[in-house]
Design a protein around this nucleic acid. Structure first.
Length: 273
DNA sequence: CTCCAGGCTTTAG
DNA sequence: CTAAAGCATGGA
């Protein structure tokens, strides 16, 4: 029900504020974190980070605790890129979460051309409206809705929750997943999975990369958004403007470490660490 | 007022 | 194929 871990490469603030998750909030001495229909309480004293939950196996995997992040940091430093070395130093407490697949699909559809505080609000209202109420030692909460629940509402519902023009993207995708499931998306390579995700209305290259990276563990994905574009220009001296080419530039440079590197860079840049 | 936010779909050329 | 318009919303 409770386990602790060396805090050097597991800092709750870094993990939660780096932009990969939209459902968490300050709680007691740390944070309350929600994933699908589960929740946990995570906090640190600076030396050890503690996770308390009713499902330790789930959150052990969720926080990617089987992976050695000291190896990832040292590999990232081996690229000898100044901006990346700087990001590694400031953001070394980041870990890549293994999140719920369907939750990632809807969350990142909502994220497009949007800002993180507003994304959080929209997702929170969707959970309250359509999610199942769950008991927890830390207090009741609402689960992320199933695709069936999401498919039961029309675009107007999501519009009313502030989703804007993404309203039909949510309901269309929910209806498709309710009908098809997502099992056909499992056990695919990154390239194959991305190709499949691009067939959903509302999922483009960047959103697909985020879903691959955060929902399906495809660490060779490198999402390129407005912050990465800015960083590419300012810190890598890049001249390309086409996001697809910028994506290729980074993935061919960082290979299997692309996803980790992307998070270190994104977090350090966006949070101005 | 304009500009921007973890961009995408649609339409025009 | 690439380029650009249009898109909801809210904060700076």
């Amino acid at each position: 029900m409770k386990f602790d871990y060396d805090a050097t490469y597991f800092n709750p603030t870094d993990v939660l504020e780096c932009g990969q998750i939209f459902r968490f909030e300050p709680f007691r001495e740390g944070y309350r974190v929600y994933s699908a229909d589960k929740d946990c309480y995570v906090y640190t004293d600076g030396a050890k980070t503690v996770v308390e939950s009713g499902d330790s196996d789930y959150f052990y995997n969720y926080f990617d605790l089987a992976r050695d992040y000291s190896e990832i940091i040292s590999h990232a430093r081996s690229f000898n890129v100044a901006a990346l070395n700087d990001a590694c130093e400031k953001a070394k407490g980041v870990r890549l979460l293994n999140q719920n697949r369907e939750e990632m699909i809807y969350s990142f559809i909502i994220s497009q051309n949007n800002n993180i505080p507003r994304i959080k609000g929209i997702i929170s209202r969707i959970c309250t409206g359509l999610g199942q109420k769950m008991p927890s030692p830390f207090g009741e909460f609402y689960a992320f809705p199933t695709s069936a629940a999401l498919a039961s509402e029309e675009p107007e519902y999501y519009k009313a929750l502030g989703a804007g023009y993404r309203d039909s993207f949510i309901s269309d995708t929910a209806k498709r997943i309710r009908a098809e499931g997502i099992s056909q998306l499992e056990n695919l390579s990154y390239d194959e999975l991305k190709k499949q995700l691009l067939t959903y209305r509302g999922i483009g290259p960047k959103v697909a990369d985020c879903i691959c990276l955060f929902g399906f563990g495809k660490r060779d994905a490198f999402p390129v958004d407005t912050w990465i574009e800015k960083l590419y220009r300012e810190d890598f001296g890049g001249e390309l403007t086409d996001r697809k080419k910028i994506n290729t530039y980074f993935t061919s440079l960082f290979g299997e470490y692309s996803g980790y590197v992307q998070q270190y860079l994104f977090y350090a840049k966006r949070s101005n660490l």
